[in-house]
Structure formats: structure tokens, C-alpha cells
């Protein structure tokens, strides 16, 4: 079965016919061609598919698109401001928080959820917020530095 599902994706209202068994990650990647969101595992293990659902980081690989009818979805593509990287994206780039880049969109969406809740997170807060995201490349140190730097930049402080 398919049904009409209304979602706001990266600020834009949409209304699409979506099969009942379609995962949110497949809807984003295949139907909307928003391929920033990644699939890193066979379900629930890695966090690469993290998107914001009504502002909260959630796993799009375990979410049925039809069951979030009415929700606001944000993906990494929605973060840029006027075509420029936002503070988190810039910090991941400048602090080498990204190597192969596969985990990066999920990391950034988890970090984005954190910074909206807490403007001055300490290292423990950052580690806790990213504990559902796995990275095979960086060893995490640079990722934590990047989130810290982005938080400082957003507060108007030099990193």
C-alpha cells in the first residue's frame, strides 16, 4: 500500500505518495535525491543515517517514512546558510573532523541536535551526543574538537 505523506524536508513542505514499507532513509536518498544522508550498516548500529526529526537526531534507517507523517525532517543538505557551510560544517572541514566523510553527515546532524539544546557543551556532553555515531577513520579526537570549535564560533568566541 502507498499513502500520501506530508513532510517538511529542509524547510520545504512536501506531499508525496509513499509505500508503507519505505524507510525514511530510502525516501530521502532515492525519491528526493538527498544523498547526503548515508547508510553505513544493515540497521541501527552506526548512526550514519542520522537526520533531525522535529529537531531531534533520529535514525532514518529504522524509521518508516509513513510513520513520521506531519514531521519536520532536516538533513545535512539543509544546514548551509545562503549557500555557505554552517559553523559545524566549516569546523569539521577546518579541524579535520572528516576523513573519508562517510560518517560525517550523521555526526554533524547529531552535533547539530546537541548545539541547538546546549550552546556551551563540555567534552562529556559532546561525547555523549555522538555516542551513537561510529567513525572508522578519525579516532574521534578531531570530531570532538570540531564540535567544540563550532560551538565556540556560534557563541562568538575564537576557537
Amino acid at each position: 500500500m502507498a499513502r500520501i505523506v506530508r513532510l517538511k524536508v529542509n524547510g520545504r513542505a512536501r506531499s508525496d505518495a509513499i509505500p508503507d514499507n519505505r524507510l525514511l532513509v530510502d525516501y530521502l536518498r532515492e525519491s528526493l535525491r538527498l544523498t547526503g544522508t548515508k547508510m553505513g550498516c544493515d540497521g541501527g548500529e552506526c548512526g550514519a543515517c542520522t537526520v533531525l526529526v522535529d529537531g531531534e537526531p533520529q535514525l532514518s534507517c529504522l524509521t518508516l517514512a509513513a510513520s513520521v507523517d506531519g514531521a519536520e525532517i532536516e538533513t545535512v543538505e539543509g544546514l548551509a546558510v545562503n549557500g555557505r557551510l554552517n559553523a559545524l560544517q566549516r569546523a569539521f572541514h577546518e579541524k579535520l573532523g572528516s576523513q573519508c566523510g562517510f560518517c560525517t553527515p550523521g555526526m554533524i546532524m547529531s552535533a547539530e541536535g546537541l548545539l541547538r539544546r546546549k550552546s556551551a557543551p563540555d567534552e562529556a556532553d559532546i561525547r555523549a551526543a555522538l555516542s551513537g555515531n561510529i567513525c572508522r577513520c578519525t579516532g574521534y579526537v578531531k570530531i570532538i574538537e570540531a564540535v567544540d570549535a563550532a560551538a565556540a564560533a556560534l557563541r562568538g568566541q575564537p576557537a
Partner: peptide, 13 residues
């Protein structure tokens, strides 16, 4: 695509 879920119908009570 991810390994697609098998067909089912969804009820939203």
C-alpha cells in the same frame, strides 16, 4: 536502496 523491507500494510490507529 537499502535492503528493502518486505511488503506489509501499515495501520496508524
Amino acid at each position: 536502496m537499502s535492503e528493502a523491507l518486505p511488503e506489509f500494510d501499515l495501520a496508524r490507529p
